[in-house]
């Protein structure tokens, strides 16, 4: 890690003296679609950077495989995740069951594969929801200042004080019973997390927007006569959003874990649905006799979270043109 650091410092010491860095980026482009190619250019350049980052490629690969697992689990594992024979109860990993068997003798590998769907759905949906709402409310708060800002910020602070798990317990225990279909439970769970999760995104965005809003290029854009929305979407948000990219990807894991803890408490998904959270909670009492029951879903959980974090970090770096030469 010290070498990139050294280069960064070198760049700093050398100041902005990079104008002779030679021709960068494609120069000849169609004249008609000039404006459009330019916007795409940023993404093309970003992709060019990302393509050469092994960590990004690995994490994207992991995310793709997991997504595929969630869509078509039967491609990865044969058999029914809920079917087991008690004779195999808590058997360790073997050629018959790569990840071993749980207390009911069900194949842990099959269950991990089938559990991906619930966990990833919660992770994806909550990230998308919290990020979108957080961005909208955060920028509205920063932009309006005054009473609207105060209302949004105070509501956010209030929601932020309640942990997801507690909120989930209250909402799920009042709105669902044991008979509620799993898809309804999942929807309510996702909505609850979104409602209680957006403030942390909004909060970070609000402060970065407040800083960016006073940037010189924003003043220049206003002087140029650009509309408020153009200034917001073209100048403020792109420059304010990079911390959000990282924060959001880091929180994917938190959402999946919330689902896990609620399932552990018996409030989340219930059989026949399978989720990693459920598996972790199921395995917890057998920590000593059947460690593998807990281990493998936890590993998948960790790998998923790590993959999202690394991908988000790489994306943020790639979208920052000052990292490019």
């Amino acid at each position: 890690m010290s070498e990139p650091l050294a280069e960064e410092m070198a760049a700093e010491v050398l100041g902005g003296q990079t104008d002779s860095a030679g021709p960068t980026g494609p120069v000849s482009r169609g004249e008609e679609e000039a404006s459009d190619t330019r916007t795409r250019g940023v993404w093309i350049d970003a992709w060019r950077v990302l393509r050469s980052k092994p960590l990004f490629l690995i994490s994207i690969g992991v995310i793709l495989i997991l997504t595929l697992m969630a869509i078509a689990p039967s491609w990865f594992a044969s058999g029914d995740p809920n079917q087991g024979s008690l004779s195999k109860s808590l058997q360790g990993p073997s050629s018959e069951g790569w990840f071993g068997f749980d207390v009911n003798g069900r194949n842990v590998y099959t269950r991990v594969v089938y559990g991906a769907r619930a966990s990833l759905t919660v992770g994806f949906a909550c990230t998308l929801g919290t990020t979108l709402i957080g961005i909208v409310l955060g920028s509205v708060a920063a932009y309006s200042s005054g009473p609207v800002d105060s209302v949004i910020s105070r509501i956010g602070d209030m929601l932020l004080g309640i942990p997801f798990a507690l909120a989930g317990i209250i909402v799920l225990s009042t709105l669902t019973t044991f008979d509620t279909p799993n898809w309804q439970v999942e929807t309510i769970l996702i909505l609850t997390i979104i409602v209680f999760g957006w403030p942390s995104i909004a909060r970070v965005l609000r402060s970065t927007v407040l800083v960016t809003r006073n940037a010189d290029y924003v003043v220049a854009g206003k002087a140029l006569g650009l509309s408020g929305s153009r200034v917001l979407f073209r100048h403020i948000l792109p420059n304010a959003i990079s911390p959000i990219l990282v924060l959001s990807t880091m929180r994917v894991g938190g959402y999946i874990a919330t689902e896990a803890s609620l399932s552990y408490l018996g409030l989340g998904l219930h059989p026949p649905a399978v989720s990693w959270g459920q598996m972790v909670s199921d395995g917890q009492p057998y920590l000593r006799t059947g460690f593998h029951v807990l281990l493998f879903p936890s590993i998948f959980l960790a790998i998923t979270i790590l993959a999202f974090v690394l991908a988000g970090e790489a994306l943020r770096e790639a979208l920052d043109p000052t990292n490019r030469r």
């Binding site: 250019g41 010189d216 509309s227 792109p238 420059n239 043109p321």
Partner: peptide, 20 residues
């Protein structure tokens, strides 16, 4: 150093006048 949007190319920066 701060009056130009770091995420936009020179073309985009100047062409924005024509967007407005």
């Amino acid at each position: 150093y701060s009056s130009l949007n770091p995420r936009m190319t020179v073309y985009d920066i100047v062409a924005e006048a024509f967007v407005a």
